[in-house]
């Protein structure tokens, strides 16, 4: 079952991260504890070790790009696994989250 690796929060004040370097490429096998990428936070460039295992199926943030904490950094899973559904689900959950946020002010009124 494919799993999403999310942009980690590597400092108390970090809201987004820049991928400074990828140490793995799509198709590589990743063990838990292996160096996956280097991420530039608001404080420093930190090494990010994976705590998940599997084959790197998808890279969500390319080297040099910025992405918010929690967004899809990568997807790990079994070789040849279809990840389209996972990406689709993520899109619809994000849409739901947005809806909820819009609803919030109304709830506070009551």
């Amino acid at each position: 079952m494919a799993e999403i690796v999310r942009m980690p929060k590597l400092s108390d004040t970090m809201t987004e991260g820049v991928v400074a370097e990828w140490h793995k490429k799509v198709g590589d096998n990743i063990e838990s504890g292996e160096l996956l990428a280097e991420i530039e936070t608001d404080k420093a460039t930190m090494e990010f070790e994976s705590f998940q295992e599997g084959v790197l199926l998808h890279i969500g943030v390319q080297k040099g790009d910025t992405a918010p904490v929690d967004s899809i950094l990568a997807i790990l899973g079994e070789k040849g696994e279809d990840i389209a559904k996972l990406l689709e689900e993520e899109k619809s959950t994000n849409a739901k989250v947005d809806e909820k946020e819009i609803e919030k002010p109304d709830r506070n009124k009551s």
Binding site: R6, P8, K9, L10, D12, F51, V69, D70
Partner: peptide, 16 residues
């Protein structure tokens, strides 16, 4: 603590 480290970067809890 290995798990705590992972939970922290996944923002399961805040603070230091």
């Amino acid at each position: 603590e290995e798990r705590i480290g992972h939970l922290y970067i996944q923002q399961k809890f805040g603070g230091f």
